[in-house]
Design a binder for these strands. Structure first.
Lengths: 211, 211
DNA sequence: GTCTATACAGGGATAGAC
DNA sequence: GTCTATCCCTGTATAGAC
């Protein structure tokens, strides 16, 4: 979870602290995120998670009901943090152009820095129980609305030239979330540079008048 | 694998026929793609694949060395078909704008119609042996070049306004491939409509002068 | 070339001591 | 609350008949 943006790279850990997880809990969380992202939920054994967290397999079951429960709690925490982080970052910014730019910047940075957690949220949810999956997908839609909101506002204000708000939202979201698929630390561009580039690209996608 | 574009929906099956796979082979292929995409490689058992293909688990091993071999051959076939399909579709089209439009249209349609196969190629490659993975990633880069080529040509010709060709390529590719994550048949827009929309969005991303 | 039956390994979850 | 030991199921792959 190391990264080139200290503020965001530590945010997930802070969120975990804030929820006052018991000792030993946090390292299980981080170990499982790494393992699920690298190898997938089903390829990851409870022994893998326990070993990475420096404990015995049985100790996991003191804090978690099952392996699925680990995935579920990771997904909920990650999405709640994503939502809260975007809300905090865009607070006080007026105007659709500024809000969209800030939102895309924040979402892209998050998906780069926390690409492991993002991969889990984007591609490992099939392993959840139906109830848990429905809840997590509701959370994911609340993140989607953070993008569709500014786009719709920009269309209403005449700042954006968009024929289909839903289509534009999906396009901008694809840009942000696919970052988690290809970004790795140490590549040509830093997470910050990519976020800046994505923000300008998003404004092109929505046909922003003012640049 | 049913879809709203008959030409592309049957293309993968035709490719398989063209390679003259033995009888029984093709249905294993299609069964495994569905299962890997729905549940992931590791969550899919050889019993699952065999059942979906209407045969015994042991019969799989007549045609495939291992479960990893099934994944490997699926990935190679799918990527070769993607590449050949784009090349065939854009053949004879002159000018970067027209070529990029046709390429994005073809790639988007493919990732919508064959979203199961695309998901496997995009997110299940970690289960491959290192040699197989390297070979498949080479194939994937050859598909990437089908996008970067027209963008670079458009910049040289003065048709596109792009500061960083690599960044623009990644953005356009994100648009195309992420379709496989969210598109499902029967949604509001057809694969054809999404492809058309993505083609125009791609031209916005590269700042195409002529529209 | 397909079947049934099975060898063998690995993993989820629990028991019970400390 | 953590450990070691273990139950028991599932899954890959193979053996051998037809």
């Amino acid at each position: 979870m190391e990264a080139d943006n200290p503020d965001l790279s530590t945010a997930f850990a802070e969120q975990i602290e804030r929820h006052r997880f018991p000792p030993g809990y946090r390292k299980v969380f981080l170990a499982a995120i790494e393992a699920f992202a690298e190898r997938g939920f089903h390829a990851t054994s409870t022994r893998d998670i326990a070993a990475r967290a420096g404990m015995s397999p049985a100790a996991l079951y003191v804090h978690f009901q099952s392996k699925e429960d680990v995935l579920y709690r990771i997904a909920v925490s990650a999405l709640e943090l994503t939502r809260d982080m975007v809300l905090a970052t865009t607070e006080g910014i007026d105007g659709p152009t500024g809000r969209l730019r800030a939102t895309v910047r924040a979402l892209t940075t998050w998906h780069a820095v926390h690409h492991a957690a993002a991969t889990v949220v984007l591609h490992e949810l099939a392993a959840l129980t139906p109830d848990h999956r429905a809840e997590v997908l509701r959370l994911r839609r609340s993140v989607d609305r953070l993008v569709s909101g500014p786009i719709a506002a920009g269309v209403r204000a005449g700042e954006f030239a968009v024929a289909d708000v839903g289509a534009a939202t999906l396009a901008v979201l694809s840009l942000c979330v696919d970052t988690a698929r290809w970004y790795r630390p140490g590549q040509r561009r830093s997470a910050r540079e990519i976020a800046e580039s994505h923000a300008e690209t998003a404004l092109r996608i929505v046909g922003a008048a003012v640049r």
